[in-house]
């Protein structure tokens, strides 16, 4: 359950339309919801339903067509971007976890994790210390100098989680983080995310297809053909 009721993600009448005129396709129809600090929320829906569009709008990658977006209490979008540098916002407030870990192959584990903090001008020693702490927390502390190609699927995903946490984000956006893992490892990663949300006070929004993971989420948001609806947990 959320540790507090401080809203970290808030969308109001947010919508996205691709194309114009007769060719216009409304990928996300007006939707409104809030995600709070410490919450783990699942974003469920079939392929092509608009999940990725929604997560990229929240991640300030895709510009919404209308509505309002608040991140960590700050108005980010209202008819247009309200901030000058969306990338800066991403590297300061958002952590990303991808389906296939997406570690940078030419950087070792330590460099993958410290890259974003160093871009935020964090002291290199502090960034390395933080990377070591995170790897220890995630149980892969002996992989600091390893290259991504030397890691197993589960280890890679843990390193990816460490990378997403390295900048002390308020929000973690995860795109099917367990899709490439077997059931046991998938469950382990999801439990870890859940633990992170409560212990690190982070709001986690997870795009998933995996119905087996549903019990681990605090709430479920369903996307179907662009319509976004909140679903009560059974």
């Amino acid at each position: 359950m959320p540790s507090s009721h401080q809203s970290v993600i808030k969308v109001e009448q947010l919508a996205k339309t691709y194309g114009k005129g007769e060719n216009a396709v409304m990928a996300i129809k007006e939707c409104s919801f809030e995600i709070f600090k410490g919450e783990t929320v699942a974003l469920l829906g079939p392929s092509g339903s608009g999940k990725t569009t929604l997560i990229t709008m929240i991640g300030c990658i895709t510009e919404p067509t209308q509505g309002k977006l608040y991140l960590d209490g700050e108005l980010i979008f209202d008819q247009h971007w309200r901030i000058n540098d969306t990338r800066k916002l991403r590297r300061q407030k958002i952590g990303f976890i991808f389906q296939s870990h997406n570690l940078i192959p030419f950087l070792n584990v330590e460099e993958n994790i410290t890259l974003v903090p160093l871009m935020n001008n964090t002291n290199p020693k502090e960034a390395t210390l933080k990377a070591k702490e995170l790897l220890e927390y995630l149980g892969v502390e002996n992989k600091l100098a390893a290259m991504p190609s030397q890691l197993s699927g589960g280890q890679s995903q843990r390193v990816a989680i460490a990378r997403s946490l390295a900048n002390n984000p308020k929000i973690i956006l995860a795109d099917e983080p367990t899709a490439a893992l077997d059931a046991e490892r998938a469950l382990s990663v999801m439990r870890l995310l859940k633990k992170l949300a409560t212990e690190q006070d982070v709001a986690i929004l997870v795009v998933t297809h995996d119905e087996r993971m549903i019990p681990l989420f605090d709430r479920i948001i369903r996307v179907n053909d662009g319509y976004v609806s909140e679903e009560a947990k059974s």
Partner: peptide, 16 residues
């Protein structure tokens, strides 16, 4: 392409 997309996504500036 993929690495550059990841770098942009995690916040790397165009300058980098």
């Amino acid at each position: 392409i993929k690495e550059i997309a990841i770098l942009k996504l995690i916040g790397a500036s165009n300058g980098e």
